[in-house]
Design a protein around this nucleic acid. Structure first.
Length: 456
RNA sequence: GUCGCCUUCGUCUAUCGGUUAGGACCCCAGGUUUUCAUCCUGGUAAGAGGAGUUCGAUUCUCCUAGGCGAUACCA
């Protein structure tokens, strides 16, 4: 068994492509087969090296490792030419010199008549010796195949015209190259988006003309934008790497993507290993799915909550570097990460939460400060007690807070809240005693003084 | 226009002829809690419409509607 992911390098690796790659990868793993990466760059106009790099980076970030490749179609032009020539020699393809203008007019007049717009085979028996090369599609009968997710699909050959397999400049086109490559690379399972369903019968006819064994086909439904329309920029991030930038963990994105069109009973959380073990086309939906970022966020939070601080630290490094936050001088990062795990939906949020431990903030949140710092007494008393505290530990700090409460005969909140604001600046922090311990004695005292000086 | 594919809560989905149609996200209401968050409990919410087949249809068939896709010298 061997599957492949065959993106064209005309942009970054997007969500839909990633999901296709994931399923192809998962099925290969499940079968103990191989997974191949092939770059379909025959369109010289639109393909770029930057896109190739972006796709490779996306695959690697997601952890979608491939056993073979990446192969590049531009390096196989000789092979395509050979097959095209063979088809020509066997009378299964022919040259066509119809102008774009004629093709255009033909299409328009056909549509005006309410017929399907397709090439009329004008040059079929002209015996020309140059121009584009068209494949002679069978005129009668129909193509029937069993798709692993859609079931039986049949299309009448009357609906398929003679497709171009080589352009005027001799370069091959998509339908020819996929067939040749999938055959040469011994791909047993062609797994791709269902926007390719309509191409499949053409390709099957090519397989038959070449007398090649056909692979299994599995067409995955599309992923739609939030309004049910095809995904586009206005739906938010489409690029896989944009999700890293926004603070998502690759395992969360993978988990989310796996559940778009696939399911395994009521199970929601899947590790990559579980996906590889449980994935099957029989549980893949036929209908397109709408991408829902809110659920992705929930998943991301689940993964952040349950990850080890060390693992999080690894992924956090990229964001730390980006934000320029230096964590080498303050508390041990994993300790800080630990207390932020339950309160961060994304890694970006986590970096935000880390800042108070490593750098000072400019001002207190005014609205909160006016309220919390109105009565300075608790803060002053707390400062006095903490100043002489020798053993700077969460427990001892907590004891000080409780003493203040007792001395002043007030509740924990009356001391804890102002203290929290004094330390964080925005009032956002976890258990105040632990936070104070990690912020450190010197900084804590400094911030308390700053809070006491605050004028409401 | 033509052809192909698709259609269960707002969203992702379970159900493989017989269920009070289940789970998850979101949302709402409670509870725990040192803010926020987490956590716990409960709740709202669905089979596009119409014909058949059947003792019985969400499930099988057909029609309609809607959505998506293809109709390129793009992939």
């Amino acid at each position: 068994m061997k599957s492949r992911f065959a993106p064209s390098p005309t942009g970054y690796l997007h969500i839909g492509g990633a999901r296709t790659a994931l399923f192809a990868w998962a099925y290969a793993k499940k079968c103990g087969g191989k997974f191949v990466l092939r770059i379909e760059d025959t369109d010289r106009e639109r393909s770029t090296q930057a896109s190739v790099d972006a796709i490779l980076e996306g695959m690697s970030w997601l952890g979608l490792d491939y056993d073979e490749g990446p192969f590049y179609q531009t390096q196989r032009f000789e092979r395509y030419r050979e097959i095209t020539q063979q088809l020509l020699d066997e009378g299964k393809a022919y040259y066509c010199q119809c102008s774009k203008q004629r093709l255009d007019d033909l299409r328009k007049s056909l549509m005006a008549k309410g017929e399907k717009a397709m090439y009329d085979g004008c040059c079929r028996s002209k015996n020309l010796s140059n121009g584009v090369v068209r494949f002679k599609n069978p005129a009668a009968g129909s193509v029937v195949f069993i798709d692993s997710v859609k079931g039986k699909i049949s299309i009448n050959n009357k609906e398929i015209d003679d497709l171009i397999i080589a352009r005027t400049d001799g370069t091959p086109t998509y339908n020819l190259t996929v067939v040749v490559d999938d055959y040469d690379m011994q791909i047993s399972h062609v797994i791709r988006g269902d926007d390719h369903i309509n191409n499949t019968p053409r390709q099957i006819n090519l397989y038959q003309a070449l007398n090649w064994k056909m692979p299994e086909f599995a067409h995955l439904p599309m992923i739609l934008g939030s309004d049910g329309a095809r995904m586009s920029k206005r739906h938010g991030a489409m690029s896989v790497m944009a999700y890293r930038d926004e603070g998502f963990l690759p395992e969360a994105l993978i988990n989310y993507l796996s559940r778009l069109g696939w399911s395994h009973g009521d199970k929601e959380l899947f590790s990559m290993a579980e996906i590889a073990e449980l994935f099957d086309f029989s549980a893949v939906n036929k209908a397109p799915a709408i991408f829902n970022k809110v659920k992705l966020l929930w998943l991301n939070q689940e993964y952040i909550k349950n990850a080890t601080p060390e693992h999080l630290h690894q992924h956090l490094q990229w964001h730390l570097d980006k934000s320029g936050l230096d964590v080498s001088t303050g508390a041990e990062p994993v300790l800080v990460i630990k207390i932020l795990q339950e309160r961060s939906k994304t890694l970006v949020e986590m970096v935000e939460g880390m800042k108070m431990f490593y750098q000072d903030f400019a001002d207190f949140d005014k609205k909160l400060a006016d309220k919390q710092f109105e009565n300075k007494e608790p803060l002053e008393l707390l400062l006095a007690k903490l100043s002489i505290l020798k053993d700077w530990q969460a427990e001892t700090i907590k004891a000080c807070i409780k003493e203040v409460c007792a001395d002043l005969d007030i509740g924990f909140g009356k001391v804890g809240q102002p203290f929290r604001l004094a330390l964080s600046g925005d009032g956002n922090a976890a258990n105040i005693d632990i936070v104070a311990e990690l912020v450190g004695k010197e900084t804590t005292l400094k911030r308390l003084q700053k809070a006491i000086k605050y004028e409401c």
